[in-house]
Amino acid sequence: MRSLVTLAAALVLAATLTVPAAASGSGAFEPYRPGAAAVTYAPDLVPVGARATVVPIAGGRRTVVILLVRGLLPHRHYGAHVHTRPCGPAPADAGPHFQHVADPVVPSVDPAYANPRNEVWLDFGTDARGAAVAVAQVPWRFGGRPAGSLVIHAEHTHTAPGEAGTAGSRLACLTVSF
């Protein structure tokens, strides 16, 4: 029920914004192969066949990103972030988190840069069927810098100095046009 309320709130907010024609990504997770839209690197935690859809919606000076997942492990918490590059054969191929204001230090673990106002954080917990909806709103729009994927991580996102923005291993990746 909570997922439906979250989705309904996101749709009400989205009604005031616009979806760019080329934006979004969707797919069923599979082992890496060239051209795969959704890749699982940990099929024990993101099973082959699980699905994800990401829809970025921009309006004015803000962006809403909606993530819908199904077929993941039931009653489990995951972290999720927008990353700079498309998915590849290795989890690191997606690059670092997309940041509106880029941290000059990589990897970024400074809460001044690694925070939910400067990055897109879509942490979620699945229901009994392994489904979830996550919504993030940021006070900026994706511009000319690259954002190419949504990565699902093993843990919710940490916020303390020295670990800000970290969320454990990269479990899966969905290539998305932002």
Rank of each mutant, 00 (worst) to 15 (best):
V39C: 05
R85Q: 13
A36H: 00
I66C: 01
N118F: 12
V135F: 08
P139Y: 05
V109H: 08
P111L: 09
H83V: 10
L72H: 04
V138T: 01
G88N: 06
V109P: 06
P107W: 07
I66F: 01
R129L: 15
V48R: 05
G95S: 13
G88I: 04
A114V: 05
Y113M: 10
E119H: 11
G59E: 07
N118D: 14
H83F: 06
S108E: 09
H75G: 02
V46N: 02
G71N: 06
V69I: 09
V55W: 02
D44F: 05
D123R: 03
R51V: 14
A42K: 01
L122D: 12
A36K: 00
N118C: 13
V133N: 09
L45P: 00
Q137K: 06
V55R: 07
G125Y: 10
A102D: 15
A131W: 04
L122F: 11
V133I: 12
T126L: 11
V82E: 03
F124D: 06
P74Q: 01
R76F: 13
A90S: 14
L68K: 08
V48F: 04
V39G: 03
D127H: 00
V138F: 01
H83E: 09
I66H: 00
G88A: 10
V54L: 14
A58P: 00
R62K: 05
R129W: 12
R33K: 14
R51W: 10
A112R: 14
Y78A: 08
H75F: 14
A128S: 12
P86N: 03
N118T: 10
G79H: 01
P104N: 09
R117T: 15
P43R: 03
L45W: 05
Y113A: 13
V82S: 04
T126R: 04
D110S: 13
H75T: 10
G60L: 05
A94Y: 01
P91T: 07
L45H: 05
D123W: 06
V120I: 14
P96Q: 08
P107K: 08
A58W: 00
G88H: 03
W121L: 11
G59W: 02
V109R: 09
S108C: 14
V69E: 03
T40M: 09
S108I: 08
D127F: 02
P86E: 05
C87D: 04
L68Y: 01
V55Q: 12
C87V: 05
G95Y: 05
G130H: 02
R117S: 15
D93Y: 02
Q137G: 13
R70E: 15
L122W: 08
R61Q: 06
R51D: 07
V48N: 04
V64G: 00
P111D: 07
H81I: 08
A37F: 01
A112P: 01
V39R: 00
